[in-house]
Design a protein around this nucleic acid. Structure first.
Length: 425
RNA sequence: GGAGAGGUGGCCGAGUGGUCGAAGGCGCAGCACUGGAAAUGCUGUAUAGGGGCAACUCUAUCGAGGGUUCGAAUCCCUCCCUCUCCGCCA
């Protein structure tokens, strides 16, 4: 959420930064509301101060022996009642304005960071670097072909169990998924991340805190009888892990990694990526999350991205780093690096991780502060996939495929999987 | 699902209409004492919003919302949550 003070003092700045995202908004009306709300608050608190004085005086007079029903006390009571009515009127107006303000502000996306390149769409994203040597030979299979051939999962029967865009992993496929989750968590905890296994049903406040609500309700699955949703990413429970807390400054940064299944409706993607593991309503992901001091968030962003990249490098998977332009930035992000893994069967780079710094945007929504010296300040939050597990499996299958039909796995995963190969050697 | 208890500051815990943002204790910080420490003593120690260069000051907040009152942590109503026991269950 954006800062109300910024709206009161410098709405032009907000407008110009949102314009970089392609949003044209006139904020003069909202600014007026914000200022009026502030004025009313000042009037009201002055009245309340007077009312408090009167309350005290009545008590003092009565204790001093004044007649509780006498004229002097009655005059104070009358004034007290008049103030009460005035205050009630002001409060009502204030509440209405506050609601309007909040409804408006909660729907605005984050302001892009200064470093984020301007652009209108995906096409304007900037490639930052490449790592590894992509296999280019022809005749390579796509991961869904390999998976079906080796019996790693059941596509059609999964529709029977749930519906389309769900997958059932079997045998070596299930085992490899489990191995990858363990491998990734071990890599991250070795770097000092605290492993978290959070609830994957989350309440509305949690989704609002991290930015999925109110704008993106249609992207999540909801439990009809409860205020609970299936989490679309571990970013949601991890943000709420410290919601409405004040963290001592010396504890920062707090760094967490979490494996969770993730659930997304994938509305509007009909017909895209219908085969295999790329786009599912339920997928596994290991997420990295930081709460850090504002002074360190830029540095932290590079670190969290490097931590995601190191998984790809340890798994010997060629990738490239893309910096998202303002037009392609997610709702809560100020700056984002996407990592795209090379899929030689498909002959394309595909997103496998997204590493974002959100500044104080989520912290303000979720009221996550830290205490340094006298006052409190909002923390900065960062999140990054480290990595999307199903897409990692897809990348391993395509990159490791051998002429004999088997799949050779990188050395790092072999101890977890129990073998360095899937299929006949 | 049935029965009961309870929600007060970082924690424990007092407080049933009046100057209470809230006793006391613990914890924490600073100072004193000490060669250093322990013990002891003194002082300080919530959050949000407003005003002020600052010292400071005003308003709100004792689970949430509403009501009674000049005045509510304290009385009334509604809701939420937590805990304990029983039942069921991985």
């Amino acid at each position: 959420m954006l800062d109300q003070r910024l709206l009161r003092d410098n709405p032009q700045l907000i407008a110009s930064q949102l314009a970089r995202r392609g949003l044209t908004i006139d904020l003069t009306g909202l600014q007026a509301i914000a200022r009026l709300e502030r004025d009313l608050e000042e009037q009201r608190s002055a009245l309340q101060a007077e009312g408090n004085q009167i309350g005290k005086q009545v008590g003092q007079r009565i204790q001093a022996g004044a007649d509780p029903k006498g004229e002097e006390v009655q005059a104070l009571r009358d004034r007290g009642n008049a103030i009460k009515q005035e205050v009630a009127g002001l409060e009502e107006q204030e509440k209405a304005l506050e609601q309007q303000l909040r409804d408006a502000l909660i729907a605005f996306p984050n302001l892009p960071a200064a470093e984020t390149p301007d652009g209108a769409s995906e096409a304007d994203n900037v490639e930052v670097k490449r790592w590894g040597m992509p296999r280019q030979e022809s005749g390579l299979q796509e991961h869904w072909q390999i998976g079906e051939r080796l019996g790693l999962w059941e596509a059609e029967r999964s529709v029977r169990i749930a519906q389309s865009r769900f997958i059932t992993l079997l045998g070596a496929g299930a085992r490899l998924e489990r191995a990858l989750i363990s491998f990734m968590l071990d890599q991250h905890t070795a770097r000092g991340y605290t492993e978290v296994l959070p609830p994957i049903l989350v309440n509305s406040a949690s989704l609002t805190g991290s930015g999925q609500l109110p704008k993106f309700a249609e992207e999540s699955f909801r439990c009809a009888d409860d205020d609970l949703w299936l989490t679309p990413t571990a970013e949601v429970p991890l943000t709420s892990l410290h919601r409405e807390e004040v963290i001592p400054a010396e504890q920062l940064p707090l760094r967490y990694c979490a494996y969770t299944p993730c659930f997304r409706r994938e509305a509007g993607s009909y017909g895209r990526d219908t085969r295999g593991l790329i786009r599912l309503h339920q997928f596994n992901k290991v997420e990295l999350y930081w709460f850090c001091h504002p002074a360190n968030s830029a540095d932290a962003h590079e670190q969290i991205t490097r931590h995601a990249e190191s998984i790809l490098e340890t798994l010997e998977l060629p990738y490239r780093r893309i910096e998202l332009c303002t037009g392609d930035l997610g709702f809560s992000a100020a700056r984002t690096f996407d990592l795209e893994v090379w899929l030689p069967g498909a002959g394309a780079y595909r997103e496998i991780s997204s590493c974002s710094v959100c500044g104080d945007f989520q912290a303000r929504r979720a009221a996550i502060r830290f205490k340094e010296g006298k006052g409190t300040q909002l923390v900065h939050t960062l999140n990054g996939s480290g990595l999307a597990v199903g897409r990692t499996m897809a990348a391993l299958l395509e990159n490791g495929q051998q002429p004999d039909g088997s799949v050779l796995l990188p050395a790092a995963i072999a101890p977890y999987f129990g073998s360095d190969r899937i299929g006949a050697a």
